[in-house]
Amino acid sequence: MSNLEDRPDELECEAAPAAGVEIMTPREVPLGGPRAMRVRRTLPQRHRSLIGAWCFVDHYGPDLVADSGGMKVAPHPHTGLQTVSWLFTGEVEHRDSAGNHAMVRPGEVNLMTAGRGISHSEVSTPVTTTLHGAQLWVALPDSDRHTDPGFAHHAPALVTGPGHEVRVFLGSLLGDTSPVATYTPLLGAEILLDPGASLALDVDPSFELGVLVDVGVVSVAGTDAKPADLAFVPPGSSTLTLVARDQPVRLLLLGGPPFGESIVMWWNIVARTHEEVVAWRTEWQDQITRDGAVVGDSQDVADGRFGIVVGDHLPPIPAPPLPNARLKERR
């Protein structure tokens, strides 16, 4: 998914210290024009930009496609990150410049590695009437951020127990381990709880954790979180206790050790310096323009760092203007 804000904030991303569970509330962001889908963005925020290596959390729906027009995100670039797509309802077609063509479906994770540069598109399918899910980004460490682009798909098994169902799409939890490779230790899981159910999870005490609530109200280590909240849990405990209140709960559990690196994140680019952002933005613009105008079809773009999204005939998304100030470099 692209960050389609016309003037995206420049963020110097660093982990912020916390003494206990912190509840982060979202802001609404439109993905395009006035009828377009709106997403609830809880990460990054000005006071906290990463949970482990997770650096971007968008949560959307349930949205009726008849009202919103569905998801129609034309080819756009990414660098220095991995995208993680997880759906609750609907179906989205993914195409990327590494030649991958796949469907995003409920209960199945699609992970795209941007590395040194990739472009991709995401379009909801004609059979989709309702869209509901999350789009997540993971920052790549400096040692691996120039890796070749890649793609992985996994349909995790359902892990069940008294009052709960769990699908582990990244990392390990409740005895299940995802085969999807990541460049830093990560945890990603969908958890469903029956009303009143309590679930004590063994977790890595070195991990920061984030609990994104989709439906219901859940107690996260003693602090209540409501729908669309992202509850941050600092490292230090080997157990995380989740308790559903009086309604069924669905949530995503995200985690990883503190990232340990500052990043500069602007638009769809995760970089380390102002100069990198400027250079990658220029490369993308040069690929998608002819005589100063954006080409009318993604098949017409020049083959460069970000490649060509074969099979997608939407015009590519131009980069927004840079802010009138130097983007902050890593300190």
Rank of each mutant, 00 (worst) to 15 (best):
F207K: 02
N268H: 05
P321T: 09
E165F: 12
H101T: 07
G171R: 09
P248W: 06
I23F: 03
L251D: 10
S49Y: 09
W86I: 10
D67A: 13
W266A: 04
G117R: 08
G150F: 11
E93I: 02
A53M: 07
F306H: 05
V277K: 08
L314N: 07
I308Y: 00
R105W: 01
D303W: 08
S219K: 00
E275H: 14
G216K: 02
I288F: 00
D9T: 04
R46L: 06
T129K: 10
Q82S: 14
S178W: 09
S219I: 03
P34A: 05
L212Q: 13
D229C: 11
V109I: 14
S238F: 08
E108H: 02
D96H: 05
R281M: 00
D202C: 00
H153K: 15
D202H: 05
L174K: 06
W267E: 05
G255Y: 04
G69M: 00
T79H: 08
D229V: 06
H78F: 00
A102S: 11
T282I: 00
L186K: 03
Q247A: 12
V295W: 01
R38N: 05
R326W: 07
E10L: 13
L64N: 03
T239H: 11
V211R: 05
A302C: 03
E22D: 09
I269V: 10
R7L: 15
V84K: 04
G188R: 08
M103E: 08
P149M: 07
A66I: 04
F207H: 14
A15K: 14
D142E: 14
E208N: 10
A102E: 10
E28Y: 05
V29E: 11
V294C: 06
N110K: 08
T241N: 06
G115L: 12
V159C: 14
P162N: 04
A325H: 15
N3V: 13
V57S: 11
L327E: 02
G236R: 10
E14P: 09
V217T: 15
P321M: 07
G188C: 06
K226G: 04
Q285G: 02
L81H: 01
S298T: 00
M265F: 13
A293C: 00
V159A: 13
V21F: 12
D303S: 10
P205T: 03
D194C: 03
V203F: 02
P195Q: 05
P156Y: 11
D63C: 04
D204N: 14
